[in-house]
């Protein structure tokens, strides 16, 4: 079976005064129907730009410089704007970190949901209303029919994010790109939304790409994980395998940085230094300057190694656990 989404060699660059900034470099991955794939990394790792690139949401000075993104067999890169607009919202949708920038403060949520349906051929007012009510109840909003007349400011932050998710669901997209959708929310609300999204993927078969900096969040929702650093995917595989026995020293470093696994009060094993500037990124492994395992070999770009369903890019990977 061919995957729902297949990205190959995706490369997105930004022209800046300091030079060409490669935000996403040669990123390849697949998402199967109904699967939740986690995309983790620190700020500047290119995880959000990867998400934006999938929907063609890259504006100048940025551009997709190379690569291919196929959704259900259809090539998205280089697609003309009209066709892309028809796909966005219908086949592939996105949920952003801040729901207040997604929603129009001047329109009731009912009106906004109707617009989203009309944009993809919705005509019958009562059918559109019924669909809006259905998606609002899918995301756990009580008394959805009454809430259609409410404005965004009448909802709490967690409820606003649910409305944004409901709008993304309206046209039954096959894939939703979720860019840190719970980061701005309180932990109790985050847990509610995580469990609702997991149920949605299970029940209606929507695939998701879950972008987050939080390894614990990704581990609780995604079956597969991609670890990004400086625009590259450094390691990928089934989430629990990767987090239980990482092959790439960066993944191990991230896990060691978490206080959850350390003895309280003891020094955490920190990754020295900070993330590199992408403008003058060299040809070698971008993590090498911060890596304890680095050697002269790391001045050259490590090729991708494959073992079963695990992949990594490292000259000195951590030995596999038997």
């Amino acid at each position: 079976m061919s995957p729902l989404l297949e990205a190959r060699g995706l490369t997105t660059v930004f022209e800046t005064r300091a030079g060409l900034l490669p935000a996403v470099r040669d990123v390849s991955f697949t998402v199967a129907a109904g699967e939740i794939v986690g995309l983790v990394g620190e700020s500047g790792s290119g995880k959000s730009v990867t998400g934006f690139s999938l929907l063609g949401l890259i504006d100048p000075p940025g551009r997709i410089a190379a690569g291919s993104v196929r959704l259900d067999g259809e090539e998205l890169i280089g697609l003309e704007q009209g066709r892309l607009r028809a796909l966005r919202g219908r086949s592939i949708a996105m949920v952003f970190q801040d729901p207040s920038t997604t929603l129009n403060p001047l329109l009731t949520i009912g009106a906004q949901m109707r617009l989203a349906l009309e944009a993809h051929g919705g005509r019958d007012a009562s059918a559109m209303r019924a669909r809006a009510i259905e998606t609002l109840s899918q995301v756990g909003i009580a008394d959805p029919a009454a809430r259609l007349g409410a404005y965004p400011h009448q909802f709490s932050g967690g409820m606003r994010q649910r409305v944004a998710i409901a709008i993304a669901l309206l046209n039954r997209p096959k894939l939703i790109v979720c860019d840190e959708p719970t980061t701005a929310l309180d932990v109790s609300i985050q847990a509610q939304i995580l469990s609702e999204m997991r149920d949605l993927a299970r029940n209606i078969g929507t695939a998701m790409i879950w972008i987050s900096h939080d390894l614990a969040v990704v581990s609780s929702i995604a079956s597969r994980i991609l670890v990004m650093y400086a625009g590259r995917v450094l390691e990928t595989g089934p989430t629990r395998d990767v987090l239980s026995a990482p092959r790439h020293p960066y993944t191990q470093g991230l896990l060691d940085s978490l206080p959850a696994h350390a003895t309280p009060g003891t020094a955490l094993r920190q990754i020295p230094g900070s993330t590199p500037s992408l403008v003058d990124i060299g040809p070698g492994c971008a993590f090498a300057p911060r890596c304890a395992r680095a050697s002269e070999a790391c001045a050259s770009d490590p090729a991708e190694s494959v073992a079963g369903n695990r992949r990594w890019r490292c000259h000195h990977p951590i030995a596999a656990v038997a």
Partner: peptide, 20 residues
């Protein structure tokens, strides 16, 4: 309600609080 890092063999890593 806080998601814990789910490693091999772990189940149900978090449980939401009811209500707002």
């Amino acid at each position: 309600s806080i998601p814990r890092l789910a490693l091999e063999g772990d189940e149900a890593a978090f449980r939401p609080i009811a209500g707002e």
